[in-house]
Simulated scan of single mutants.
Amino acid sequence: MKECKNKCDLKSCFLCQLVLPDWLPAIEANKRNLEIKKGQQVFKEDDPVTGIYFVYKGTIKVHKRWDNEKELIIRFSKPGDVIGYLGLGLDPTYPVTTTALEPSVVCFLDLQFLENTLNVNSKFTVALVRLLATDLQESHKSMRDLAHMSVKARIAKAFVSMKNQFGLRSDGSINLDINKQDIAAYAGASYETFFKVVTELTANKIVAFSGKSLFIQNEALLLEIIARG
Rank of each mutant, 00 (worst) to 15 (best):
residue 42 V to M: 02
residue 101 L to G: 11
residue 199 T to Y: 12
residue 117 T to F: 00
residue 95 P to K: 05
residue 42 V to C: 05
residue 1 M to E: 02
residue 35 E to M: 06
residue 203 A to G: 14
residue 5 K to L: 15
residue 69 E to C: 05
residue 8 C to Y: 01
residue 74 I to D: 02
residue 138 E to H: 12
residue 183 I to R: 02
residue 210 S to L: 12
residue 214 L to H: 00
residue 76 F to L: 15
residue 157 K to W: 08
residue 195 F to L: 10
residue 24 L to Y: 00
residue 132 L to F: 05
residue 17 Q to L: 11
residue 60 I to W: 01
residue 63 H to M: 10
residue 99 T to I: 06
residue 77 S to Y: 02
residue 128 L to V: 00
residue 183 I to T: 01
residue 86 L to S: 09
residue 105 V to F: 02
residue 16 C to M: 03
residue 117 T to L: 12
residue 178 I to E: 02
residue 193 T to H: 03
residue 200 E to Y: 14
residue 70 K to Y: 11
residue 7 K to F: 09
residue 124 F to C: 10
residue 152 K to T: 09
residue 199 T to G: 15
residue 155 I to K: 04
residue 89 G to L: 05
residue 37 K to C: 07
residue 90 L to C: 06
residue 55 V to G: 10
residue 87 G to R: 00
residue 51 G to D: 04
residue 120 V to D: 04
residue 196 K to L: 08
residue 71 E to M: 15
residue 148 H to R: 11
residue 26 A to E: 14
residue 134 T to I: 07
residue 30 N to E: 15
residue 23 W to C: 11
residue 176 L to I: 11
residue 167 G to T: 04
residue 68 N to R: 13
residue 126 V to D: 03
residue 155 I to N: 03
residue 84 G to V: 06
residue 113 F to W: 01
residue 222 L to M: 06
residue 191 Y to N: 08
residue 63 H to E: 12
residue 58 G to W: 00
residue 216 I to A: 08
residue 19 V to H: 01
residue 209 F to M: 12
residue 134 T to M: 08
residue 146 L to M: 15
residue 182 D to Q: 05
residue 130 R to D: 08
residue 122 S to A: 11
residue 134 T to R: 14
residue 22 D to E: 15
residue 4 C to W: 00
residue 185 A to N: 05
residue 167 G to L: 07
residue 113 F to L: 11
residue 74 I to F: 12
residue 62 V to A: 03
residue 70 K to W: 07
residue 124 F to E: 07
residue 100 A to V: 01
residue 178 I to N: 02
residue 131 L to K: 11
residue 222 L to D: 06
residue 129 V to T: 11
residue 196 K to Y: 07
residue 35 E to G: 08
residue 151 V to W: 07
residue 18 L to Y: 02
residue 216 I to F: 03
residue 144 R to A: 08
residue 120 V to Q: 10
residue 14 F to Q: 05
residue 161 S to N: 14
residue 185 A to S: 13
residue 120 V to L: 13
residue 188 G to Y: 02
residue 190 S to D: 11
residue 187 A to D: 04
residue 222 L to K: 06
residue 1 M to V: 06
residue 105 V to I: 15
residue 214 L to K: 01
residue 138 E to G: 08
residue 80 G to L: 03
residue 221 L to E: 13
residue 112 Q to T: 12
residue 178 I to D: 01
